[in-house]
Amino acid sequence: MEHTYNGMPATDLAGASWRKSRHSNSQGNCVELAELSDGSIAVRNSRFPDGPALIYTRDEIRALVLGVKDGEFDGLMV
């Protein structure tokens, strides 16, 4: 895989297998994640699949998921 960077076009991530939550709705209002060959995780907006992808380390994604599970972001759902 070529060099990855935050904000790169998601279409440049050749071979990325994008996944989204089963909780997403039919209007495509969700984010999608893909594991990259170097172990990092790419995130993109499903409404703009050709748009930018943000690249995170596994530790960063782990911290986010644990925070979500602990309810730390529940206030954003209002």
Rank of each mutant, 00 (worst) to 15 (best):
V65N: 09
F73R: 05
D59F: 06
W18P: 05
N25R: 02
P9L: 10
W18G: 07
S46W: 05
R22W: 09
P49Q: 03
A10V: 02
I41N: 12
L36D: 09
D59Y: 07
H3E: 14
Q27H: 14
K20V: 08
D74I: 00
M8N: 05
A10P: 02
E35A: 15
E72P: 00
N29Q: 14
Y56L: 14
D74S: 03
R19C: 11
H23E: 11
E2Y: 03
M8W: 00
S24G: 15
D59M: 08
L13K: 03
V43T: 10
I61L: 15
L66E: 10
F48A: 13
R62Y: 09
W18L: 11
D70Y: 08
I55E: 13
R62I: 06
L64R: 12
G39S: 07
S24E: 15
G15L: 11
V65T: 11
Q27W: 05
I61R: 12
M77K: 11
G71Q: 03
F48H: 11
A42E: 04
G67D: 02
E2K: 14
Y5R: 15
G15T: 06
V68S: 04
N25I: 03
E72W: 12
L36V: 02
A34K: 04
V78A: 06
V65W: 04
P9I: 05
A14C: 05
V78L: 07
